[in-house]
Amino acid sequence: MAAEEAQTGLVFHPMDQFIVKPLFGGDAIYWYTPTNVTLWMGLTVLAVALLFVIGTRGRAVVPTRMQSVAEMGYGFVYKMIEDVTGKEGLKYFPYVMTLFCFIVFANFVGLLPKSFTTTSHIAVTAVLAVSVFAAVTLLGFAKKGVGFLGLFWVSSAPLALRPILALIEVISYFVRPVSHSIRLAGNMMAGHAVIKVFAAFGAIAAISPLSILAITAMYGLEILVCFIQAYVFTILTCVYLKDAVGDAHH
């Protein structure tokens, strides 16, 4: 970083946007300190409330635009659980919906200029992924008892291969929360950092139009990524949930 500053006068701070800062001055960050995390998560809650509570206030049979979007979100997640997990998964619809709403709104709120993207932090996505992992594991044992371990014993494979496959299955099972969380945080972080890098190039007059064009293009891509990553996170949650509550073997 220092070398770059010294050589060209360009200032690259693509990662500064991810720094957690206290909102009201001071240095120390305790667990209860209101930080920019608090602010942007609060805005996420507000956005969810705006769409799903204020937007559906009318309870209209012929929906308004806001209510229509809220209904679409409801139907989207509901159908996803029904299709992927099956009817038994619908019991957990509020939890999955909470996950989806938080991720999709945190992603989109994080696209506002000068914002802080809470879902770009591995601490946040790891908590989400680990809670899904823990919930699925506990639920699996609670529902199926020891039979849940049948997940690792691939009965359709030849007997000789099964121990090896079981080992691979166990490893892949425990890697799930890692990939699950890093996928989301990585996507969010990378896109925002790239936009910041392009923005820094805007300081050079000759290439600033190109820079603006690149930012615009990246921004469009990021809008897509924001939704797709929320979708991917949710659908993987449904897939994992299927292992615990579904009856079909994979």
Partner: peptide
């Protein structure tokens, strides 16, 4: 910063869960 983030995340998730499951 992890404890801070995790604390506020839990608060956020509980709030969203309440909003969704109780009202929306």
């Amino acid at each position: 910063t992890f404890s801070n983030q995790i604390f506020w995340l839990v608060v956020t998730l509980v709030l969203i869960y309440m909003l969704l499951s109780r009202v929306a």
